[in-house]
Computed example of a mutant assay.
Amino acid sequence: MASSLISDWESWADDLSGDGAMSVSSGVLTASSAAGAGSAYKTRRLTVEPGDIVTLRCMARLVSTAGISVPGGPRVGFNINTTGSSFISHSEVITEDWAMYECSAQIPLHAPSPSYARPAIGVYTDQGGEAEFTKPSIEISKGQYGTPRVMAWGLLKFDAGVPTVQTDYVRGGNIAGTYNSGTKKGVLTVPKSEGFAQPLFFEHQYAESGKNLRFMLDDYEPTGTINYGFYDKDGALVDVSAINSIYVGLMMVC
């Protein structure tokens, strides 16, 4: 059985920083901020149990795309058992037309009882922009089994060992990286596992790029980093600081 509610903005708390600004008129929330200069979003705390499925929905539209970072944008999202900014599930507002936005995730079966889900709606520090949001609906339903959550995904292009997410392909979450030619290894920064199970990583290297090299990951840290390297057919590390345009598809599942 599911419990649903449509809540007025009065039951949500303001979270403002820097140049962030918010206002509510006729039930519509307007939130704005410049990328990297502040944040403006509404949040609330929900008590949930392991196995619960939490779904957040609202109508939203972009008012202005000025200052939006790429990738990025105003968000509808939430996290679990944390007050930080790493979202378990989120949906980015991408059009100036009104549209329905939804995000959903299941509380892990091994999470504490009770647990807490923290829905948040607005503009976050790294994104920027201006958007409008209608009153949200929240649904909490009982789930029997845990389900995986895709924390981050995208096509990475490695130039001189350093990855960039290709914005013209489907993508989500935050992925960045640095490379050290001395150690012949790099470090990817990905979403934190937030104390849940050790995540799984799935990667696919495209045959046309980095021929005779194999991309491999190892040593994930709960702080949100994982080492990577490129290996030859004999299993030896290769310095790729002089090689460009190696493409790897990556997915992180928790």
Score class of each variant (00 low, 15 high):
M1Q: 08
M1L: 09
L5F: 15
E10G: 09
E10L: 12
D14E: 12
D15A: 09
S17C: 03
D19Y: 11
V24P: 03
S25A: 14
G27F: 11
L29Q: 05
G36F: 07
A37H: 13
A40G: 07
K42V: 11
L46A: 00
T47V: 15
E49V: 01
L56N: 00
L56S: 03
L56T: 00
V63Y: 09
S64I: 04
G67W: 15
I68D: 04
V70I: 13
P71V: 09
P71K: 08
G73D: 07
G73W: 07
R75T: 03
V76M: 09
T82V: 07
T83Q: 10
S86A: 11
H90A: 06
H90G: 09
T95C: 11
T95N: 13
T95L: 13
T95M: 08
E96Q: 07
W98G: 06
A99M: 13
Y101Q: 00
S104C: 00
S104A: 00
S104F: 00
P108C: 04
S115G: 11
A120L: 06
I121S: 05
D126T: 09
G128N: 04
G128W: 08
A131R: 09
P136L: 02
S137A: 14
I138Q: 05
S141H: 02
K142D: 11
G143H: 10
G146E: 01
G146Q: 01
T147A: 13
P148N: 02
V150I: 14
M151V: 03
M151A: 11
W153R: 10
L155K: 15
D159I: 01
A160F: 05
G161K: 04
P163S: 05
T164W: 12
T164N: 13
V165G: 00
Q166Y: 12
V170F: 14
R171W: 14
G173S: 08
T178K: 08
T178R: 10
Y179Q: 02
G182I: 13
T183C: 04
K184G: 10
K184Y: 10
K185A: 06
V190F: 03
P191N: 04
S193P: 02
S193A: 08
Q198W: 12
F202C: 06
E203I: 15
Y206K: 05
Y206M: 02
A207I: 10
E208M: 12
N212W: 12
N212Q: 10
N212H: 14
R214P: 08
D219M: 12
D219W: 14
D219E: 12
E221S: 14
G224V: 03
G229C: 06
F230I: 06
Y231I: 03
D232N: 15
L237M: 12
S241Y: 07
S241Q: 02
A242L: 14
V253K: 12
